[in-house]
Amino acid sequence: MYSGLLAAPPTVATYSYLLDWYLFFGVGAAVVVISMLAVFMIRYRDRGERTPMPKHKTEGWKIVLITVLISVTILSAAEYQTFAAFGNIEIPSSALCLQQTGSPCVQVCVQAFQWGWNYTYPVNGMTCAESYNHGLYSGAPGNLTVPAGRDIVLNLTSTDVFHSMGITMLDEKEDAIPGRVNQMWFEVPSVQVTASPDVLKVVCNPGLTACTYVDAIRCFELCGVGHATMLANLTVVTQASWNAWTGGQSA
Protein backbone atom coordinates (compact mmCIF):
# COMPACT_ATOMS: atom_id res chain seq x y z
CA MET A 1 0.00 0.00 0.00
CA TYR A 2 2.98 2.28 0.36
CA SER A 3 4.47 1.47 -3.01
CA GLY A 4 2.22 1.31 -6.00
CA LEU A 5 4.86 -0.71 -7.78
CA LEU A 6 5.96 -3.87 -6.18
CA ALA A 7 9.55 -4.06 -5.06
CA ALA A 8 11.83 -7.05 -4.83
CA PRO A 9 12.00 -9.10 -1.65
CA PRO A 10 14.28 -7.70 0.99
CA THR A 11 17.89 -8.74 0.82
CA VAL A 12 20.78 -8.41 3.21
CA ALA A 13 21.60 -5.22 1.33
CA THR A 14 18.14 -3.78 2.08
CA TYR A 15 18.80 -4.11 5.77
CA SER A 16 22.42 -3.04 5.78
CA TYR A 17 21.53 0.08 3.77
CA LEU A 18 18.83 0.97 6.28
CA LEU A 19 20.98 0.03 9.22
CA ASP A 20 23.75 2.29 7.94
CA TRP A 21 21.35 5.21 7.96
CA TYR A 22 20.27 4.50 11.52
CA LEU A 23 23.85 3.93 12.63
CA PHE A 24 24.94 7.17 11.01
CA PHE A 25 22.26 9.18 12.82
CA GLY A 26 22.35 7.17 16.01
CA VAL A 27 26.08 7.05 16.56
CA GLY A 28 26.32 10.66 15.42
CA ALA A 29 23.71 11.84 17.91
CA ALA A 30 25.20 9.77 20.73
CA VAL A 31 28.69 11.09 20.09
CA VAL A 32 27.53 14.70 19.87
CA VAL A 33 25.34 14.64 22.99
CA ILE A 34 27.73 12.63 25.15
CA SER A 35 30.63 14.87 24.09
CA MET A 36 28.58 17.92 24.99
CA LEU A 37 27.92 16.41 28.39
CA ALA A 38 31.61 15.64 28.87
CA VAL A 39 32.77 19.06 27.71
CA PHE A 40 30.29 20.96 29.92
CA MET A 41 31.09 18.70 32.83
CA ILE A 42 34.77 19.55 32.60
CA ARG A 43 34.44 23.14 31.48
CA TYR A 44 32.09 24.03 34.32
CA ARG A 45 33.56 21.84 37.03
CA ASP A 46 33.74 23.33 40.48
CA ARG A 47 37.12 25.03 40.87
CA GLY A 48 36.47 26.62 44.19
CA GLU A 49 36.87 30.38 44.26
CA ARG A 50 38.04 30.73 40.71
CA THR A 51 34.68 29.77 39.24
CA PRO A 52 32.57 32.79 38.36
CA MET A 53 29.22 32.86 40.13
CA PRO A 54 26.71 30.84 38.20
CA LYS A 55 24.42 32.90 36.04
CA HIS A 56 20.87 31.79 36.68
CA LYS A 57 18.97 31.26 33.51
CA THR A 58 16.08 28.89 34.02
CA GLU A 59 13.92 28.82 30.95
CA GLY A 60 15.54 28.03 27.66
CA TRP A 61 12.58 27.71 25.32
CA LYS A 62 14.81 28.70 22.41
CA ILE A 63 17.11 25.73 23.06
CA VAL A 64 14.08 23.50 23.43
CA LEU A 65 12.73 24.64 20.10
CA ILE A 66 16.07 24.00 18.43
CA THR A 67 16.24 20.54 20.03
CA VAL A 68 12.79 19.70 18.76
CA LEU A 69 13.57 20.93 15.26
CA ILE A 70 16.83 18.98 15.02
CA SER A 71 15.19 15.85 16.46
CA VAL A 72 12.26 16.04 14.11
CA THR A 73 14.55 16.48 11.13
CA ILE A 74 16.81 13.56 12.00
CA LEU A 75 14.01 11.25 13.02
CA SER A 76 11.95 12.05 9.94
CA ALA A 77 14.92 11.28 7.75
CA ALA A 78 15.35 7.92 9.47
CA GLU A 79 11.64 7.16 9.37
CA TYR A 80 11.56 8.08 5.69
CA GLN A 81 14.17 5.44 4.98
CA THR A 82 12.10 2.88 6.86
CA PHE A 83 8.99 3.74 4.89
CA ALA A 84 10.97 3.57 1.68
CA ALA A 85 11.85 -0.02 2.57
CA PHE A 86 8.23 -0.96 3.33
CA GLY A 87 7.80 -2.05 -0.27
CA ASN A 88 10.33 -4.78 0.42
CA ILE A 89 8.60 -6.25 3.44
CA GLU A 90 5.08 -6.18 2.07
CA ILE A 91 4.37 -9.57 0.59
CA PRO A 92 2.62 -9.66 -2.78
CA SER A 93 -0.30 -11.91 -3.58
CA SER A 94 0.45 -14.88 -5.80
CA ALA A 95 -0.94 -13.12 -8.85
CA LEU A 96 1.16 -10.04 -8.25
CA CYS A 97 4.16 -12.24 -7.67
CA LEU A 98 3.81 -13.69 -11.12
CA GLN A 99 3.19 -10.33 -12.70
CA GLN A 100 6.16 -8.77 -10.99
CA THR A 101 8.83 -11.40 -11.48
CA GLY A 102 7.70 -13.20 -14.56
CA SER A 103 7.65 -16.47 -12.69
CA PRO A 104 5.45 -17.30 -9.70
CA CYS A 105 6.89 -17.01 -6.21
CA VAL A 106 7.86 -20.31 -4.65
CA GLN A 107 5.36 -20.96 -1.87
CA VAL A 108 6.42 -22.97 1.16
CA CYS A 109 4.08 -23.80 4.03
CA VAL A 110 5.87 -23.87 7.36
CA GLN A 111 4.38 -25.32 10.52
CA ALA A 112 6.29 -24.57 13.67
CA PHE A 113 5.92 -27.00 16.55
CA GLN A 114 7.60 -27.76 19.86
CA TRP A 115 10.42 -27.97 18.81
CA GLY A 116 11.04 -27.89 15.11
CA TRP A 117 9.66 -26.88 11.74
CA ASN A 118 7.66 -28.83 9.15
CA TYR A 119 7.94 -27.75 5.54
CA THR A 120 5.31 -28.52 2.94
CA TYR A 121 5.80 -27.54 -0.69
CA PRO A 122 2.33 -27.26 -2.17
CA VAL A 123 1.88 -28.74 -5.60
CA ASN A 124 0.43 -26.47 -8.24
CA GLY A 125 -2.23 -24.14 -7.02
CA MET A 126 -2.95 -25.77 -3.69
CA THR A 127 -3.42 -23.71 -0.58
CA CYS A 128 -1.43 -24.49 2.51
CA ALA A 129 -4.44 -25.95 4.30
CA GLU A 130 -5.03 -28.35 1.42
CA SER A 131 -1.43 -29.24 0.95
CA TYR A 132 -0.66 -30.24 4.54
CA ASN A 133 -2.15 -33.61 3.68
CA HIS A 134 -1.19 -33.89 0.03
CA GLY A 135 1.79 -31.64 -0.43
CA LEU A 136 5.26 -32.57 -1.38
CA TYR A 137 7.41 -33.14 1.63
CA SER A 138 11.05 -32.31 1.81
CA GLY A 139 13.28 -35.24 1.07
CA ALA A 140 15.58 -34.33 3.91
CA PRO A 141 13.46 -33.64 6.99
CA GLY A 142 14.56 -30.60 8.93
CA ASN A 143 16.01 -28.79 5.95
CA LEU A 144 14.16 -25.92 4.40
CA THR A 145 14.99 -26.33 0.72
CA VAL A 146 14.64 -23.43 -1.70
CA PRO A 147 15.88 -22.66 -5.19
CA ALA A 148 18.43 -19.90 -5.65
CA GLY A 149 17.48 -16.77 -7.55
CA ARG A 150 13.73 -17.14 -7.03
CA ASP A 151 11.33 -15.19 -4.83
CA ILE A 152 10.40 -17.43 -1.93
CA VAL A 153 7.27 -16.87 0.20
CA LEU A 154 7.08 -18.72 3.50
CA ASN A 155 3.59 -19.16 4.95
CA LEU A 156 4.20 -19.53 8.66
CA THR A 157 1.91 -20.94 11.27
CA SER A 158 2.25 -22.89 14.48
CA THR A 159 0.54 -26.01 15.71
CA ASP A 160 1.06 -25.32 19.41
CA VAL A 161 2.67 -22.19 20.85
CA PHE A 162 4.13 -18.88 19.73
CA HIS A 163 7.36 -19.34 17.76
CA SER A 164 9.35 -16.95 15.63
CA MET A 165 11.36 -18.05 12.65
CA GLY A 166 14.61 -16.23 12.08
CA ILE A 167 17.02 -16.76 9.21
CA THR A 168 19.74 -14.42 10.37
CA MET A 169 22.06 -14.98 7.38
CA LEU A 170 19.30 -13.33 5.33
CA ASP A 171 18.33 -10.91 8.12
CA GLU A 172 14.80 -12.29 7.93
CA LYS A 173 12.35 -13.01 10.72
CA GLU A 174 8.61 -13.53 11.18
CA ASP A 175 6.44 -14.90 13.97
CA ALA A 176 4.76 -18.29 13.69
CA ILE A 177 1.52 -18.02 15.67
CA PRO A 178 -1.17 -20.64 16.25
CA GLY A 179 -4.43 -19.87 14.47
CA ARG A 180 -2.80 -17.48 12.06
CA VAL A 181 -0.75 -17.54 8.86
CA ASN A 182 2.01 -14.98 8.56
CA GLN A 183 4.16 -14.51 5.53
CA MET A 184 7.80 -13.77 4.98
CA TRP A 185 9.57 -13.47 1.66
CA PHE A 186 13.14 -13.44 0.52
CA GLU A 187 15.49 -14.41 -2.23
CA VAL A 188 18.80 -16.24 -1.97
CA PRO A 189 20.88 -14.87 -4.84
CA SER A 190 23.04 -17.94 -5.43
CA VAL A 191 23.62 -21.44 -4.14
CA GLN A 192 26.81 -20.45 -2.43
CA VAL A 193 26.45 -17.07 -0.76
CA THR A 194 29.40 -15.33 0.81
CA ALA A 195 30.38 -17.07 3.99
CA SER A 196 28.00 -15.82 6.64
CA PRO A 197 29.03 -15.52 10.26
CA ASP A 198 25.50 -16.42 11.32
CA VAL A 199 25.62 -20.09 10.48
CA LEU A 200 27.54 -22.86 12.15
CA LYS A 201 28.98 -24.14 8.89
CA VAL A 202 28.24 -24.43 5.19
CA VAL A 203 28.26 -27.79 3.43
CA CYS A 204 28.16 -27.83 -0.35
CA ASN A 205 28.01 -30.79 -2.67
CA PRO A 206 30.86 -31.30 -5.15
CA GLY A 207 29.01 -29.94 -8.13
CA LEU A 208 27.90 -26.88 -6.15
CA THR A 209 24.28 -27.58 -7.10
CA ALA A 210 23.26 -27.49 -3.43
CA CYS A 211 24.64 -25.90 -0.29
CA THR A 212 23.34 -26.53 3.20
CA TYR A 213 23.66 -23.78 5.79
CA VAL A 214 23.78 -25.54 9.13
CA ASP A 215 21.73 -23.95 11.93
CA ALA A 216 20.78 -21.05 9.66
CA ILE A 217 17.22 -21.15 11.04
CA ARG A 218 16.56 -20.42 14.69
CA CYS A 219 13.54 -19.83 16.87
CA PHE A 220 13.46 -16.29 18.28
CA GLU A 221 10.60 -16.59 20.76
CA LEU A 222 10.79 -18.56 23.99
CA CYS A 223 8.71 -21.67 23.35
CA GLY A 224 9.60 -24.08 26.13
CA VAL A 225 12.56 -26.20 27.12
CA GLY A 226 13.48 -26.98 23.51
CA HIS A 227 13.74 -23.34 22.51
CA ALA A 228 17.54 -23.23 22.32
CA THR A 229 17.75 -26.32 20.18
CA MET A 230 14.93 -25.41 17.81
CA LEU A 231 17.47 -25.08 15.01
CA ALA A 232 17.17 -26.02 11.39
CA ASN A 233 19.24 -26.02 8.23
CA LEU A 234 18.61 -24.10 5.06
CA THR A 235 19.46 -25.84 1.80
CA VAL A 236 19.78 -23.74 -1.32
CA VAL A 237 19.72 -25.57 -4.64
CA THR A 238 20.02 -24.54 -8.23
CA GLN A 239 16.88 -24.01 -10.28
CA ALA A 240 17.67 -27.19 -12.23
CA SER A 241 18.01 -29.29 -9.08
CA TRP A 242 14.83 -27.77 -7.74
CA ASN A 243 12.93 -28.72 -10.87
CA ALA A 244 14.30 -32.21 -10.70
CA TRP A 245 13.47 -32.54 -7.03
CA THR A 246 9.91 -31.33 -7.33
CA GLY A 247 9.37 -33.15 -10.59
CA GLY A 248 7.95 -29.94 -11.99
CA GLN A 249 4.94 -30.25 -9.72
CA SER A 250 5.74 -27.22 -7.67
CA ALA A 251 5.89 -23.83 -9.26
Partner: peptide, 19 residues
Protein backbone atom coordinates in the same frame (compact mmCIF):
# COMPACT_ATOMS: atom_id res chain seq x y z
CA UNK B 1 17.32 5.56 23.82
CA UNK B 2 19.13 5.57 20.52
CA UNK B 3 19.07 1.78 20.21
CA UNK B 4 15.35 2.18 20.84
CA UNK B 5 15.07 4.34 17.73
CA UNK B 6 16.54 1.44 15.76
CA UNK B 7 13.81 -0.81 17.13
CA UNK B 8 11.08 1.63 16.10
CA UNK B 9 11.63 0.61 12.48
CA UNK B 10 9.43 -2.34 11.49
CA UNK B 11 11.96 -3.15 8.78
CA UNK B 12 14.98 -3.24 11.07
CA UNK B 13 12.88 -5.22 13.51
CA UNK B 14 13.29 -8.12 11.08
CA UNK B 15 16.95 -8.03 12.06
CA UNK B 16 16.72 -7.30 15.76
CA UNK B 17 13.53 -8.91 17.04
CA UNK B 18 14.03 -11.42 19.83
CA UNK B 19 17.79 -10.95 19.82
Amino acid sequence: GITGVFLSSPVLDRVFRGS
